[in-house]
């Protein structure tokens, strides 16, 4: 407990000594940045405006999943999720849980829970897409933490 208080005091002292309480928030320059900033601050289905138009903070995959909960639609989205995951696996950036999420989606189709299957497939497809983004970012920025 003493240690915790000491640490807290140090943090506060550092913050005060530097005369900066908090750095500034990023300014959105592109649609993707504006989308991310709004999703980060408000979660999903939040309305925001970008260059005069209104948009929602809903991921494209969530939009894809918001179709009628039928077997065909669920299977269709699962196929797309598998394809996206194969793409990210190819560049070596497949995430650990994605295959399991797809397996759960498959299982939900078997038990007739198509809504659940759609939602899981959307999450898996999103994971694969962000994994690809992560790979592209790493290709350009991996050196950021190399000591000089």
């Amino acid at each position: 407990m003493k240690k915790l208080i000491a640490t807290l005091a140090t943090v506060l002292a550092t913050v005060l000594a530097n005369g900066i309480f908090l750095p500034t928030v990023a300014v959105a320059e592109t649609f993707d940045e504006a989308f991310e900033m709004n999703r980060a601050m408000y979660g999903k289905d939040h309305s925001f405006s970008w260059t005069g138009k209104q948009y929602l903070t809903t991921h494209p995959e969530e939009v894809e999943a918001s179709v009628e909960a039928t077997k065909e639609n669920a299977e269709d989205l699962i196929v797309k999720a598998k394809a996206k995951n194969a793409e990210v696996a190819k560049v070596g950036f497949e995430w650990k849980l994605t295959k399991g999420i797809i397996a759960d989606a498959d299982a939900a189709v078997t038990t007739g829970d198509y809504r659940k299957a759609l939602n899981l497939a959307a999450q898996a497809k999103y994971h694969a897409r962000i994994g690809l983004q992560q790979h592209a970012y790493a290709e350009q920025n991996w050196q950021l933490s190399v000591p000089q």
């Binding site: 750095p23 928030v25 990023a26 991310e36 900033m37 999703r39 980060a40 601050m41 408000y42 979660g43 999450q123 999103y126 994971h127 962000i130 920025n141 950021l144 933490s145």
Partner: peptide
């Protein structure tokens, strides 16, 4: 509070080498 939420959602926005996982961005 929304700014705090954004920090939890993706801490690498403000510090690209942050060790903190992007809890929202990476779902």
């Amino acid at each position: 509070k929304r700014i705090l939420r954004a920090q939890v959602w993706d801490a690498t926005k403000n510090n690209p080498i942050s060790i903190m996982p992007p809890l929202g961005k990476h779902w």
